[in-house]
Amino acid sequence: MGLALETSQKLAEFSALPAEEQAARRGAVRVLVPTGLGLNCEDETQYAFETVGASVTRMHLLDLLERPAQLMDFRILAFVGGFAFGDHLGAGFVFANKIRSRMYDTLVGFIENGGLALGVCNGFQTMTRLGLLPGLDGDYRTPRATLAPNDRPGYRDAWVRLGFDERSPCLWTRGLESMSLPARHGEGKLLFADGVREVVEAGHLVAARYVGADLEPTESFPQNPNGSPGGAAGLCDPSGRLFGLMPHPDAFLYPFQHPDFARRRGTGQHVGADGLRLFDNGVTAAAALG
């Protein structure tokens, strides 16, 4: 398990390049951030990708739908958080439905062509509705997973701790062990169609889980905010290029956003802006894989 050999090699080659060369190649990574229709997190997502060196274009989804082929100019597609269409009919539903009916072939083409995609929160919900995740057997069209309403009804905003599966093929979580991030959703319980969970688990596609103080996956509230079985918080496809995550790395972009920042500051303990590491991984992968 873990990364495909070829992928590992390309990543190793990339990290061996001189720093300026790496920076130049990262700068050439173009990220598309669709906006509008109730999405909310475009500012912080743009800032996150730019901070790790990529080049970001924001585009209203309705403009993208006018000319879907524009997508092919990008290497990363970011589905950002928000409340597209108010989460009416289920989180992400109406938004995903628009993409499905207007640019599905282009989107699948983008993925088959090696594109990367990140979905955070509402973006993750959109990706499951579209069938992009878990994307088993190269099928990116059949919805096999869903993010169901939390066991405790209603939206909740609180920081949680995530543990990452080091054996996952996920390019976005490569090298990460654990980090704290805010979970902010009302529909985050990751459920699968019959028979899918086994395949997903066997492939280590659940790249991120809610963990307790002992860093073990948990199903108990509040460490697991939604009751997701096995603590599943994030899901990738078998290629590792597509990743969806409920908690928000885009809300931990500065050290002082960590709830313990003020306490640790005086004690000399380091607090990093961990959320950026996910974006950094994605951009590195896009730059390395070309």
């Binding site: 997190c41 909740r156 905003d157 809300a251 956003q257």
Partner: peptide, 22 residues
């Protein structure tokens, strides 16, 4: 209060709840 989002936009520094367990 936890049902209200206090972190969207990614600009929140001191949040509405603080302390060892926030």
């Amino acid at each position: 209060a936890r049902h209200y989002d206090h972190e969207v936009k990614g600009l929140t520094v001191i949040k509405p709840y603080v302390g060892a367990r926030a």
